[in-house]
Design a protein around this nucleic acid. Sequence first.
DNA 1: CAGCATACGGAAGGGTGGTTCCGCTTGTCA
DNA 2: TGACAAGCGGAACCACCCTTCCGTATGCTG
Lengths: 183, 183
Amino acid sequence: MRADARRNREKVVAAAAAAFAESGLDTQVEDIARRAGVGVGTVYRHFPTKDALVGALAEDHFERLADTVEAALEEPGDAWETFAATIWRIASTIASDVAWCEIVGGHPTAIQTASQGQHRLAAATSTLLARAQEAGAMRADVTFADISTIMCGFGHIAAAQRAGAALDWERYLTIALDGLRAR
Amino acid sequence: MRADARRNREKVVAAAAAAFAESGLDTQVEDIARRAGVGVGTVYRHFPTKDALVGALAEDHFERLADTVEAALEEPGDAWETFAATIWRIASTIASDVAWCEIVGGHPTAIQTASQGQHRLAAATSTLLARAQEAGAMRADVTFADISTIMCGFGHIAAAQRAGAALDWERYLTIALDGLRAR
DNA sequence: CAGCATACGGAAGGGTGGTTCCGCTTGTCA
DNA sequence: TGACAAGCGGAACCACCCTTCCGTATGCTG
């Protein structure tokens, strides 16, 4: 790969990440290209479609989330506290990026491919969940699918909040986590 | 208004309600017109824009929801039970209509106008909420905004579920309602 | 340095879907 | 019943964006 091509690819990825984080997945390809200082043709040489670009960035996000959760598995301490703190950490990371909120919330444009990162994330979260249940701190009937559902709702609410809706994802999470606790 | 015009208006409203309920707010105006047995021009003579049509139907939905909640206020019985049962009733009504899920979930196309029906709905729900708190069954810090947020998440999840996602709005509501209860 | 493959920019292409417009039809009222 | 206003159908219009294409520029290799 030619040196200028590599350089341009990096500029595109950086510009796309910034633009999506700021304005969401509806950001136009032309805006990303302008931000990167290249033409749209260049964006398309590196990524066959806009979805592929979103997918590449999303996978990167999921890998980093998986790292976070796997790191939490190593830490000692109360199982419930670890679970809750991890959810909060993940949520605030996601909430800082509009596109990420939309992806987690299930925006139609987003990739649904069960990727490497998503698998790791699911596995680590399931373990965290199981530990909290074994400790008797979490309702026994909760499954990983429930956590997915709650996080899907979270993503949507956070995205809407960023878009100006009178919603509060922190209150949402507080209530949802309380609903997960054992009585 | 001419008799045929009134008849056509009713056909358009009925067709739109059915089409939106089935396929969501993305349904094209031409599909609605075909379903009503009229041309698109006729749809536009009765409603200046697609949004206006959606808005008219939405307002009707909100009025009916408000009726339901106001009726619940009259019923005697445990305050928490009444609250929870009402939320469940509302939720299953909404879940039966894709467009309604999208509106409640905050689909961008949907009207955000604070209408008559929405006001009545908000007022009645707030009263129901306050009674449950006075009875000591609901967390004291919960506000109407929290209920809105939870229902927004619900709408989104129900819409995604209808679209084929592996989500379960009933589990979601179970957990969320549990999170609202006093400990 | 010459020559070529690789890469680039951005105008043009194409699909989608809301909205408009106008010639024709149909109620309504005198 | 005749005449006119109101209503109708649906093709055409237009805006928005993703994607493609091609003439030009540039890094790399011998």
